[in-house]
Amino acid sequence: MDQKDKASRDLAIKARDLAKPFGSYLALNGIDLDIQRGECVTIFGPNGAGKTTLIKVLATIMNPSAGTVWIDGINLKDNIEEVRRRIGIVTHQTFLYNNLTTYENLDFYCRMFGVPNRKERLLEVIETVGMTSRLHDRVGTLSRGMQQRVSFARSQLHKPPIMLLDEPETGLDQDSISMLWKMLKGSTEDRRTIVLTTHNLEQGLEFADRILIMDQGKIVYEGLRQSLDLPGLKKAYKSSTGALP
């Protein structure tokens, strides 16, 4: 048991036999995951493959109906609040309140995460996404791309060692997308663990250390970045899901 425990402590994310039904359909159907510290994993898959559900389960938004998740070796069932402190999440929804300003939104999330020296940390983070000039504008008045940048800042407030990103580029214009990828790459440099789902094969591949493809609640393909190029990935996608990427 010691051997096994030590192994799971060394992993950033470990999951076994995850299942989650919606009605009589299984959005997750026996998922096993082992993600090393500092690893970047990109998950591809058609709509309805279970990518979002998987991210939500890892982010503790959804409880799996079966299976177990360990984050940094902590079982979700044992200390869920500690797990939440270690996770930052960005999705295509910003989790920001439109009627509050950028500052108020970030300050609110600082309070929720119990961030020390709130103001200092907040200004530091907003600087990194280049939104300092819009600090006192209502989030509702910002463009979609700017909102997503603030949302990225929101996810960084508590310095999470693990980042979960669920199609963060959805609904963004080209400039904002490249900005987003730049920010993401910036965050890979400090050896953080990243799990990303995306429809963008090219960027997703370039970004990752490891590729997973999901279909019908299962992981149907797994490959390392070194052994794949874009055409190879497209072929793998087509043969494992039967759909065009």
């Binding site: 609040e81 920001l96 309140y97």
Partner: peptide, 14 residues
Amino acid sequence: EQDCLEGLMVCPVS
């Protein structure tokens, strides 16, 4: 709007 409830749920609060 913007799934803020999920944003609250990932916070380490009861």
